[in-house]
Amino acid sequence: MATKEKEWISIPMTVDVPYRFAAGEYLTKTLTELRDNGRIYAVECPKCKRVQLPPRIVCAECHVKNERWVELALEGTLAGFTIMYLPLTDPTTGKPHEPPFVYGSVRLDGATSVMDHFVDVEPDREKVWVGMRCRVVLRPREERIGDLSDIRFFEPLPGQKKPQPSTH
């Protein structure tokens, strides 16, 4: 164990790592379409038919080239969620997301993949549930830059109620 009478020396350090990331052919199409036209494109594997988002050139499971582009609906179903109580920092901007907020995985209609994003709903478990129908809310065209922040959040479709658990 550390002895109390000794002094232990430390030195603070900050490492700032700049990098330039190239999206590549497939993701470039999806991000450009999202930014310019507000559309979300995924790719379908010719073999297993899974519609993959973000799009990638090869299906990891079938090892074949994905070639067919599919435009997804801007609506989907919540597959999992959390109500975040931690002030998480956006590592790319250094700014915190103010808690509490709802954050979830949504499967857009037509996609096999899920997509993680904020859900614009009160941080109340009665107001959000797995299976809730949601839609994409985009930023205005002039604010879009070509990444996931072009989507402001998902919002619940109106007129839904949390299903009550069935009694066993």
Binding site: V15, V17, P18, F21, L31, T92, G146
Partner: peptide, 8 residues
């Protein structure tokens, strides 16, 4: 499509 980012 390329973007400049950094991690601190």
């Amino acid at each position: 499509f390329e973007v400049d980012q950094h991690l601190t």
